[in-house]
Design a protein around this nucleic acid. Structure first.
Lengths: 220, 220, 220, 220
DNA sequence: TATGAATGAGTGTTCATTCAT
DNA sequence: CATGAATGAACACTCATTCAT
């Protein structure tokens, strides 16, 4: 997709030694930010080039200076979003050895991401839907397989088995549970940070002691 | 320089007027079924009248014999879907007194629904996204509130508190957990029945004994 | 989902075929009346078969039992309307010998027609526009030439010349004046019976004595 | 039985993107001119965007670069037309003090307008009908009242009473007469400049001396 | 006679994209 | 770099008309 975009390096003589396209980069960045929000709010099809252009303060034609197509914008946003999320998760899980530790860090990281930039979580939720729905995206993104968090989930389950926290046979069950939790936490609490906070606390408690963590009577 | 394309135009043999042995109710039902699948697969905006019409074996104009607009089709599908799901949940939870019992029935019912008609779950997932995304739907469906399952979740938490299965203060936490699970189970396993099966089993185990249900070593 | 939906075949109570005690001629007449009003109110293109059918209490399909096409309805309405108007004018002018007498009867007849059935005047105004505008009507009605009143105007002018009320050379001028008056009285006072009454009185006075019929000072 | 039609599809050689040497204002102006003629000839509903676009040498989509809707085109045309007519009438009546003077100038101005640009008169006649007929226009043009000429008619009658040319009580009668004449002259002589000329001469004569201005015998 | 299911051509409108400037 | 005039294919929807029942 990027293959065709030729970067013609016009030797700007005005600013010596400075990157010639500082403004350009800023515009491009703004475009990406706006696009992330739009895609998150209205989906791929519901987002129009004009919408993005207007909110970024340029015209639709100018978009094609930075991206080769609407699809290209989407892919770029997705690329950046997933890389950012990946780094955050990687850093967060770095020091954790136990499965439970990793897991809790994962949930907290998801929440922190959501707090830092809600548009990101909203985009990712949108992305999961649209990458299956929209033909263009199905074709254009198929390779990328499935998002980052799946990788972490797998890593996490492996750690649990290795450390004896869970039995070997339970791997697939825990894997399913993790998927449910991570996706559920994203999709069920879009723009509801407080709800997400409570949910995470509930999940943590249950994971430790089962649902009756607080029971006044023994579980039937 | 003038490329000339020859198009073989086979004159359509379909006749005007009422086709023989058509059953109005049957056609309408087919339309709804097709629409549910289309909306689930491609979303509201990604679904075109032509798509639905073609798959139902009629023309776009004929749609308007049964529905006043695309929005009307969507609302009808939604109405039927939610009513059906509601009944299924209501029946399933009828005999259950304990929170855990209700909860497990809920998960199993969700799974059973998914098995019986995968298009239904897919539509409902689509619905949740589109009813927030698409302006038409935001306006046209104003605040049917959030679907049925939320009601059941609330009922369930109340039962848990009443029976002492959970402490009173834990209500909101459990509520959050439930939302996470129900939404997660729907969204994370679209068209993955087997995965959902495993996830449910994992959830059940964890709910009873915590994540270390199967641990060979005590939880760190 | 549809798997469970039981199709209760409620025996259709709607009666196909000929309903008892319908009078074909009566229906046809109602159709024409409704059509006249619709065409008058909304014009040829703005009037839909469904509109006419609904207001006449039948379905669009049934229309084609009485008329071969929308154009046919219009032509029928036009035919009847013009014939009716023609008869009224003919009767009214019968006894009048002088041009002025004929003229005044013409104006009064126009007014009387308007009072008796406002839809008629409205249709005729509509007709003049649409018969020039709408391609179908241009082609389908061309032969009919231009309405009745023109004929009377010509007759009237001839009478005036014959009786010496006006000079021979003034024929074309009077002809133009008459056209202006008759058309103006129709188009300028659609649904304004009172206004038309005043206008006619004004016209009559002016025709007798010039515009200064009531002057307190001699005309400059 | 299977007739096969061969269609020679000559690939369109028109290019995308901005055509060379286009002048935005010029195109917009052309669009308005074309639209005025179309609306005048075929009415609001009978005029299609495609018609206007084709005659203006662009595509239907391009129309929306200049106008937000078909209604917007119509309103723009109407606005311009009425303003132009208003100015012409205002200038023409400027120096006239007597009612008769004003009146004659009015008739002559109407005629001059018709000669200068017949499409204008035709549009205005169309406008009067359509603004009452077409729901869109009824709503979209709400009560611009009735056009300019009514204002002038009122002004004229007032002048006549003030100057003693007519009696005070005759005001409403003259008002009605004027309406009849102005509307009649427009509607009865669309595309018949010569007829209109004669009619105006007839009207002028009658206004001075009554219909028998030329009589060889006294009026009965 | 009348119904109502269905067609097919057409309408206004939107939108990603192109390209001269 | 950016604008904005323009395209062309698509879309939801309407409507006169047809015809089995």
């Amino acid at each position: 997709m990027q293959a065709i975009t030729l970067k013609i390096v016009t030797p700007k003589m005005t600013k010596l030694g400075r990157p010639p396209d500082t403004d350009s980069a800023e515009t491009r960045g703004r475009l990406i930010d706006v696009a992330r929000r739009c895609f998150g709010d209205h989906g791929y099809e519901g987002t129009t080039n004009r919408m993005v252009a207007n909110e970024a303060g340029i015209t639709t034609g100018a978009i094609y200076h930075y991206f080769s197509s609407k699809l290209d914008i989407f892919c770029t946003v997705e690329e950046e979003a997933h890389q950012y999320v990946y780094r955050r998760f990687a850093i967060a899980l770095e020091g954790q050895e136990t499965m439970v530790g990793k897991l809790e860090m994962m949930l907290e990281t998801a929440h922190a991401l959501n707090r830092d930039d809600p548009t990101l979580a909203k985009f990712l939720a949108s992305y999961r839907i649209d990458s299956q729905r929209v033909p263009e995206l199905r074709d254009g993104l198929q390779a990328r397989g499935w998002p980052i968090r799946d990788r972490f989930v797998a890593e996490l389950v492996a750690a649990g088995i290795a450390s004896g926290e869970i039995g070997e046979k339970s791997g697939p069950l825990i894997d399913g549970l993790m998927k449910t939790l991570t996706v559920g936490l994203t999709d069920a609490f879009i723009e509801d940070l407080e709800g997400q906070r409570l949910a995470i606390d509930g999940i943590k408690a249950v994971l430790r002691d089962g649902i009756a963590f607080d029971a006044q009577q023994p579980l039937g």
